[in-house]
Design a protein around this nucleic acid. Structure first.
Lengths: 150, 150
DNA sequence: TATTGTTATACTCTATAACTATA
DNA sequence: TATAGTTATAGAGTATAACAATA
């Protein structure tokens, strides 16, 4: 069965574009998960830690929104990260019901190693493309994700 | 935190390439799942049905390998598809332990509608790109997925 | 009355492994 | 002994909704 949409070139077994993206995303996630395990982290913690490495002192609600997860997921993720000594919940200066989430020294120190591993995974999956093609695909995917469909 | 890898252009909140692919894949899957629900199907059934639309009369083991799932998953998927009257397990001509899986008339008739929906989802997610860019990203992703990393 | 965050519960998915029947 | 397929069961992940505390 051939999807003859002009935006769908011939694909192996003619699977559709979205299917390829989904499988690729799952494979990249699995690969990063395995890498992160070696430093005691998991893929579930990645978006939260990534957001905090970029900027900490966020409320849980703000973290929830940046990580595109559910609020009850954030609660449990922070529980585990706190138990591991990577983050701390501090009282909010003006609201007594909100918390501010900060990285600990230990949590901050993991950034370099984790990001190195993420880069390696990206490079591995991009390795069949030329440098120019790698830049192209990254910028096209960026364009797709930053201007999402209504 | 900026990933200054040359293959990682500036991304929103500087999330990494793999993360964008994973989120995009999940969003496209969710979107197709919603579309398929309207004709009584789910995203879990998509790869199996897609493979059968391309070629039926496969053994369960062959289906398992083409869909990149687990054998016990195939068993349950086929149970549900059979209950819905979309596929049939037939005895294998030479081996009494293997089955051949065939689409029913009803299952075959769903192809056009389902593929139309999948195309619409792909088009929706690609809509922020020009036609040329759409072709580019599809062919680059194809290149990545057909020459997977070791 | 709405917001921040936690918890209980149920439901879906997936993984492991034991099982049958064949080869 | 290996293969095709099924089933039982446990675990992880996710969703719903109720809840307490605060605004």
């Amino acid at each position: 069965m051939i999807i003859d949409n002009p935006y769908e070139p011939k694909l192996p077994r003619n699977m559709s574009f979205g299917w390829h993206i989904a499988v690729l995303g799952a494979n990249m996630s699995d690969s990063l998960d395995k890498e992160l395990k070696s430093i005691g982290l998991s893929i579930n913690q990645w978006p939260t830690l990534f957001a905090l490495w970029e900027e900490d002192g966020l409320t849980q609600t703000e973290l929830t929104s940046r990580c595109n997860t559910a609020h009850y997921t954030t609660t449990r993720l922070l529980d585990s990260l706190e138990k591991m000594g990577l983050v701390e919940r501090q009282p909010h200066p003006t609201s007594r019901r909100a918390h501010l989430v900060y990285l600990t020294e230990k949590g901050r120190n993991l950034e370099e190693e984790a990001v190195t591993k993420a880069r390696a995974v990206n490079a591995k999956f991009l390795s069949s493309l030329s440098k120019k093609e790698q830049e192209q695909v990254a910028s096209l995917i960026l364009k797709m994700t930053t201007a999402p469909p209504v």
